[in-house]
Computed example of a mutant assay.
Amino acid sequence: MNYVETINREIMGMAEGLVASLPSLAIGLVIILLTWLVAKIAVRITARLSARAHLRESLRTLIATVTTVGVWLVGLMIAATIVLPGLEPAGLIAGLGLGTVAIGFAFQDIFENFLAGVLIMLRENMEIGDLIEVEGVLGRVESITLRETHIRQLSNELTIMPNSMLFKNPVQILTDAHIRRDELTVGVSYDTDLDHAMEVIKGALVGIEAIDDDKPVSVFAWSYGASSVDFLVQWWSDARPRDRRETKSDVVRAIKRALDDAGIEIPFPYVTHTFKEPVPLLRDAAE
């Protein structure tokens, strides 16, 4: 057997096949370039339409991603059928189905986060810019991708969380409404007239501008403390964290000032020592 002649014949056959397929390769390359161009145009069109529809930013991102993936899938399928004439669309779709199943088992976590990202983007309650708390992470949502969510914590650290974690665990959306109820416990001494103290505390909150006037201020005699009778004070204010802290500071100062003006004591813990037997007292050595 002449191996050199066989190798030369195979190389010549491959070269002739390559030359014969050059037109198909050129057409396939042109189709890929057209696919890239069509994908860019389609994304711009969908972005304008979603902007006119006033869709939230996460849903706009999802629509742009789905549009890009759809255009590229169609373009690559057309290019593949042209470059490989024996490949039929039905067989290509069937092969993609089997390949997707195999890839799904191999990259289960990636596809889980991908599907979770799609479902998160379809949610209406959580948007980019919302303040959320999940699994001990408290911060503002900066971006939502198909695999992960970026949360900027209040201390300015950036936390990147897999979408599956936000989808499987309870998520507290702290800025879902523009106002939130806040509360504070205030203690007064046991010899205080509780009805009078309640009126003083409620009146102290009247002059605070940050408190929502449309919602009632509630003051309840709540519990018996170790050294005081405790009142539970509740009010409604802006849901943004900084505004809530500033409002609470105003409330604390206003209540303290009102109780001082009314002569009502905010007691500190009293400690009484009781001895079973008389305790001798030592006189001062100078005496």
Rank of each mutant, 00 (worst) to 15 (best):
I151D: 03
K168E: 13
T145M: 11
F167L: 02
G139C: 09
V186A: 02
T145I: 02
E142Y: 05
I144R: 00
T175I: 08
I179D: 05
V171K: 05
T159I: 02
T159L: 01
L158M: 14
R180H: 00
L174V: 14
N156H: 14
N156W: 11
G136E: 05
K168V: 13
Q172I: 14
T159R: 15
L158F: 00
P162C: 12
E135W: 04
D182P: 05
L146C: 08
T175D: 07
I179N: 08
T185V: 11
I173K: 03
R152S: 15
I151W: 08
I179S: 11
S155K: 11
M165A: 11
D182T: 10
P162E: 11
I144N: 03
F167N: 13
M161P: 03
L166F: 00
S155R: 10
T149F: 04
L184D: 06
R152K: 14
D182S: 14
A177N: 13
G136I: 04
L166E: 09
V141M: 05
T175A: 00
T185K: 09
R180C: 12
E183A: 15
E142K: 12
T175V: 09
V188M: 09
F167Q: 02
V137L: 08
P170T: 06
N169R: 12
S164H: 01
S143Y: 03
L146P: 01
L158G: 01
F167M: 12
I144Y: 02
H150V: 04
M161I: 04
I151R: 04
N169Y: 11
I151Q: 06
F167T: 03
S143G: 10
R181C: 08
L146I: 09
N163L: 06
S143D: 02
E135G: 07
I173R: 00
D182W: 04
F167H: 10
P170V: 01
H178M: 08
